[in-house]
Amino acid sequence: GATAVSEWTEYKTADGKTLYYNNRTLESTWEKPQELK
Rank of each mutant, 00 (worst) to 15 (best):
30 W>N: 09
9 T>E: 11
24 R>V: 15
7 E>I: 07
33 P>Y: 03
14 A>N: 07
25 T>K: 00
15 D>Y: 03
30 W>R: 05
8 W>H: 00
34 Q>R: 05
9 T>M: 11
10 E>M: 06
6 S>V: 08
36 L>H: 08
21 Y>G: 01
17 K>I: 03
16 G>F: 00
6 S>P: 12
28 S>T: 14
14 A>Q: 10
34 Q>G: 09
11 Y>A: 04
16 G>Y: 00
15 D>W: 04
18 T>E: 03
11 Y>L: 15
21 Y>S: 02
22 N>R: 00
33 P>T: 02
37 K>H: 12
7 E>V: 06
32 K>F: 04
7 E>M: 05
8 W>A: 01
17 K>E: 09
5 V>N: 11
4 A>S: 12
17 K>T: 08
30 W>M: 10
37 K>V: 14
6 S>N: 11
34 Q>V: 12
32 K>R: 10
26 L>A: 11
15 D>E: 08
13 T>G: 09
2 A>T: 14
12 K>E: 10
3 T>Q: 12
6 S>W: 08
8 W>Y: 02
25 T>Y: 03
17 K>D: 07
21 Y>F: 14
29 T>E: 02
13 T>R: 03
12 K>N: 07
24 R>H: 13
35 E>T: 05
33 P>R: 00
25 T>V: 01
35 E>Q: 07
6 S>G: 11
3 T>E: 11
29 T>D: 03
24 R>Q: 12
20 Y>E: 02
10 E>N: 01
32 K>H: 03
22 N>L: 01
35 E>A: 11
28 S>E: 11
20 Y>K: 00
9 T>S: 10
1 G>N: 13
6 S>K: 08
31 E>I: 11
35 E>G: 09
15 D>P: 00
33 P>L: 02
29 T>H: 07
26 L>T: 09
32 K>S: 04
36 L>M: 11
36 L>Q: 07
8 W>Q: 00
5 V>A: 14
29 T>V: 10
12 K>P: 07
32 K>V: 11
28 S>Q: 10
23 N>R: 09
23 N>S: 14
7 E>D: 13
8 W>F: 01
8 W>R: 00
5 V>D: 11
12 K>L: 13
17 K>G: 04
19 L>F: 15
24 R>D: 08
24 R>M: 14
30 W>K: 07
16 G>R: 00
4 A>P: 12
37 K>W: 15
5 V>E: 12
12 K>I: 13
37 K>Q: 14
9 T>V: 14
19 L>K: 08
20 Y>H: 02
3 T>M: 13
3 T>R: 12
3 T>N: 12
37 K>A: 13
16 G>S: 01
37 K>S: 13
11 Y>M: 11
2 A>G: 13
5 V>I: 14
35 E>F: 08
33 P>W: 01
15 D>S: 09
15 D>R: 02
30 W>Y: 15
30 W>A: 10
11 Y>C: 15
36 L>G: 05
28 S>F: 15
1 G>T: 13
36 L>D: 07
4 A>N: 14
28 S>K: 12
22 N>G: 01
23 N>I: 10
24 R>Y: 10
1 G>A: 13
31 E>G: 03
32 K>C: 15
12 K>S: 07
34 Q>W: 10
20 Y>F: 05
36 L>F: 08
29 T>N: 04
16 G>D: 03
29 T>M: 06
6 S>T: 10
32 K>M: 09
10 E>I: 09
13 T>M: 14
22 N>M: 00
9 T>N: 06
17 K>R: 15
13 T>L: 09
18 T>P: 04
37 K>L: 15
35 E>W: 05
18 T>N: 05
1 G>W: 09
9 T>K: 06
7 E>N: 06
26 L>V: 01
26 L>Y: 11
27 E>R: 03
31 E>A: 05
13 T>S: 08
